[in-house]
Design a protein around this nucleic acid. Sequence first.
DNA 1: GAGATTATTTGGAACGTTCCAAATTTTGTC
DNA 2: GACAAAATTTGGAACGTTCCAAATAATCTC
Lengths: 347, 347
Amino acid sequence: MSKGRVTVIDIAHAADVSKSTVSLVLQGSPLVNEATRAKVNAVIRELGYVYNRGAANLRQAKSKIVGIVVNDLTNSFFAELAVGVDMVVQSAGYVQFLSNTGESIDRQREVVASMREHGISGLIVSPARGTDAADFKPLTNAGIPVVIVVRNIPGAKVSSLVSDNFAGASAAVEHLVGLGHRRISFMGGFANTAVFAERLGGYRDALAKAGITFDDELVVATAPSRAGGVEAVGRAMLLADKPTAAVCFNDAVAFGVCDGLRARRLEPGVDFAVVGFDDVIEAESAVPALTTISVDPQGMGRRAAQLLLKQINSGKVEAEAIVSAVRLVVRQSSGLALDTTARRAVS
Amino acid sequence: MSKGRVTVIDIAHAADVSKSTVSLVLQGSPLVNEATRAKVNAVIRELGYVYNRGAANLRQAKSKIVGIVVNDLTNSFFAELAVGVDMVVQSAGYVQFLSNTGESIDRQREVVASMREHGISGLIVSPARGTDAADFKPLTNAGIPVVIVVRNIPGAKVSSLVSDNFAGASAAVEHLVGLGHRRISFMGGFANTAVFAERLGGYRDALAKAGITFDDELVVATAPSRAGGVEAVGRAMLLADKPTAAVCFNDAVAFGVCDGLRARRLEPGVDFAVVGFDDVIEAESAVPALTTISVDPQGMGRRAAQLLLKQINSGKVEAEAIVSAVRLVVRQSSGLALDTTARRAVS
DNA sequence: GAGATTATTTGGAACGTTCCAAATTTTGTC
DNA sequence: GACAAAATTTGGAACGTTCCAAATAATCTC
């Protein structure tokens, strides 16, 4: 009693009841008499008892732990996502294992295995590039619900929650066309990813609808990072028929594009229109404020967590695919209508 | 055998050995014969056995779980920190509970309690503002090592790892003085925090060493965010004797200061020198690139994790206070020497 | 106040692992 | 091939909880 941790049996002795009764109290069962409940609770506080969830799980096989693995926590988009998940998970009385894979498939496999050993009862994952659809089979086979977020994995028979990339890119193009642009570039992103394909699809579709013929040269794929954005501008500006606007793969790229423009003495939002994708937290306060497609990563995190919890509680592993609506947020980086700009430049 | 999960006993039966032997194999004990080991391992793979760490912990009272709670994961400084922790924790075979408190003391208390119930064997915490030194007493009493990072809590008898705020601010001032500045403002941060006090202390000390008298008006405390930086510039520019340079509480503030300067048609790094603090990932690629005090949050995360693991393994809870060295990284935002700038402006 | 109800409490037996002490097998020695 | 020594294997008994069936206590009914 002096050394080891305080257990339910210690409480039982001290409160002069059986361990079963203590257990009932712990679970807030209505079966126990108010007086005994009070007595037990008093002893619990007095002895500084701490509940051992591990032992409980062993018996009930139902942990209050979910796992979340993201491919790049360094990217504030994913950090926001994690925060969103954390919020709902926390208030549902769960706790989350969080791991960062840094886009490494091996690491991802390791952490998922480790989480499984630790008895997670659900998993949210933003998969590393190149993740195989079969990688989550063991989880689902064991009845552990999995929700894939952000990046879809074609063929995986698990739930997914991705943003409407097609509609987003499409809206960005429409916006630029509305401002008078016709040479619109698509900048950044790795070409062999599902997200890239979806966004590029939206871009092409909107161009077609506007009667603008698609020009291969205007899509410049680079790393989806700030540096990638800088590189993209560099390549695009080598063209004979230069673009006057760009829809970027994501906000990081968009910021890089702004940097690159400035390095060429072009002011984003004045001399060149740029639209981002994601609406990260800095997008609003940047100069110029970034016109972008808002996907509300924190909200996505919350929805993903809600979906996961729903599946955990319902006990059915039926896959559900949600595409999350996005909306265009017009700020300064896309500038005024082209005509106006032209007039200003002349005067 | 058909329904429930595969257990060590199932393996034992299938491999025709005892459960003890299986356990030995699982732990990689040298006591077991190579042939049996191979046989058991084969069966393990074949049956798709997954180790139940919960059950193991119950017996050994030694989990492979650490907790990490941060006050604001949305801030990329802390996200980086978490990634650093994750790296070493992962490769040591541990897994981490991560929770975000969003500066809420109540939430912090909740998650720490929850983590404790889940049996963490160590905790790394970047405490929410206003955390009481006594809050971690129960943990340490139970022999669970705690490492406080980033923000020190005076009086807490636990290990801590903070960056050398005094030296950092001091170096920033020296750098600016070296460039010829004499009206140097200190911008951003909440005045009632330990970190603020330390950085302001370094600032004052360096001013004194340079023979510049400290002017109260030049320290403008605001929220430690981008918006706070904008606000700070606004306030500082109301002064009769305006500053020509600023050392900022952190990089977020510094970016805000740049925004604010631009809004006033001043170019950071040309018309006004700004130095940040933290060296977040965007500092390098921003325009202008931010001169800042590099604290390498990811490195801090790694060191914190190493310290924690050391304490977990050694079994002693002796508190250790580490202050992590910082270094000045000169980029463009602090500009050229004042004279030069002046000459350029005239020409 | 006896019998029937209802409310409360309670000992085991799990859960899946590790540990211990002891049993068994193998190897070595002469 | 008998004995000792070393190597390997093995049954229980934990660990701290929850669950079940059953026991006990309290209340009601006439």
